[in-house]
Amino acid sequence: MSAFLTVGNLSAVLRGNRQRVLRSVSFSIDTGEVLGLVGESGAGKSMIGKAILGILPSAIEIIEGEIVLDGQDLQTMLPADRRRLIGATAALIPQDPLTALNPSRRIEPQITNRLVDILGWSKADARVRALELLNEVHIDNPERVMASYPHELSGGMRQRVLIASAFAANPKLVVADEPTTALDVTVQKQILRLIRDLQQRHATAMVFVTHDLGVVSKVCQRLSVLYGGKFVENASVPDFFAGPTHAYSRALLAATPKYTDPDASLVPVDEAVIEAVAAEVAAADEEWRHAR
């Protein structure tokens, strides 16, 4: 069976200095599978999600590679067709629930807009569906929440609303861009469980962007470690936690705080390891430039 989403050899540059920010990234995801993208900040993990959904900032340009979604190559499609395809099959769970809902609109239209405008549902059907979804994300009083403005809801509530909204149109692919980073630890766990439950129930393919290896172990089947916009390791989650092969991944895993031993001091990633991985990325860059 061919993968639902395939990203092949994707490279993107900053328009200004032509520096590569994504360096020949390749991966694929099957239906119902969750891929974790892990790396430190600035490694380009969110960028990959944005590239797939076509919401890269205008300063960044894709220069080569392909993104094949549901058998169709996004890079060769007309922009209007691409937007229609993404709108019909994909959804985003954004990072910061505080800025991801429009402050001057009520919750209801923010969930139902897509159903009514794009998919042609009736207002009443969309409303029923929205209530159902809010129930699914364990919101006790969905009627009241639908009539609220975002500033009347807590951060955790807003993230639930965003998750409900992402799953509203039964997407086949969801990009979760650090969905729990802006939440406090007690809420994080509930939200993660919610996302996983919904993902399993709807058999959604999912790209899960995070810097937290603990989160990856709970949600993902496979993961890719990024450094400087390049994949340094791809592995299945059990294999990875049994023993990562790349030195940088090992250092990253060692640097994760252990909940079983809260008194242990944190281990920073060794500078030598960083230098080595940076050199590796630079060498790959050189090779790539040569090949062009």
């Binding site: 076509g54 993404i86 954004p94 910061d96 807009n113 909204s165």
Partner: peptide
């Protein structure tokens, strides 16, 4: 335009005018 809710609206395929 840089806000996440605009990104979400773009992902949803809603028209620019809207």
């Amino acid at each position: 335009s840089a806000m996440d809710y605009v990104s979400s609206a773009i992902v949803a395929g809603r028209p620019r005018r809207d």
